[in-house]
Amino acid sequence: MSESATSPVLALRGIGRTYHSGEVEVAALADVDLTIEANEYVSVVGPSGSGKSTLLNVLGLLDRPTAGSYHFEGVEVADLDEVQRTAVRGRRIGFVFQSFHLLSHRTVMENVSLSMLYTGVPQGEREERALAALDAVELSHRASFTPTRLSGGERQRVAIARAIVAEPALLLADEPTGNLDSHTSDAILALFDRLRALGLTIVMITHDLNVAHRADRSVRIHDGRLADVVRT
């Protein structure tokens, strides 16, 4: 499916996403072109309501665009049925949500293992791999805690461990530092740098320009349009 090392991980052509609320049509995304190469680190910046989350949901196959074409690892996503989209989502894409989305009644270990539940990782390998992922975010000593006993930064690192444990090609992060103080944010960004060095492709949403500049390049979005591309 990935044709060669140089083919892009994803390519959007003329992507639109329109919401209908009653009579009113809201174009959350309009005519978006975007290509992201393997092992690229891209940040998406824009004001609130500009369509950043909508873009991320489309990229992550959580949402279907209403126009345009989207190739993920060389495959036209529009041709996939729901089961196949779910498979791509589960196996090839890792998500880090702004609000963590951790299961508060389950341990850190169980939360991280959740990404391996549906992707066919054998029972016996899961604990080892979850521990390795927790090691990568320096939280293996918290494996038996429940998220309620963790700080905000620790919770975000658990969420990142969960996103990378199934070894996805693409990491999608929606405001991963939005809820964190600057010191903790730096730790998370340093972690992204390390993951990037390990070969991961990263798309990160942020409204903080300082954070955005940690990426290879930044994409600015305004009213659903990619307004310009800033090379850093």
Binding site: G60, L62, E82, V83, T86, A87, R89, G90, R91, F95, F97, H101, L103, L114, S115, L117, Y118, T119, R162, A166
Partner: peptide, 14 residues
Amino acid sequence: VGEIGLRRAVGARR
């Protein structure tokens, strides 16, 4: 609902 969304994101089918 949030847990359901999360599970769908990590590969759970309907």
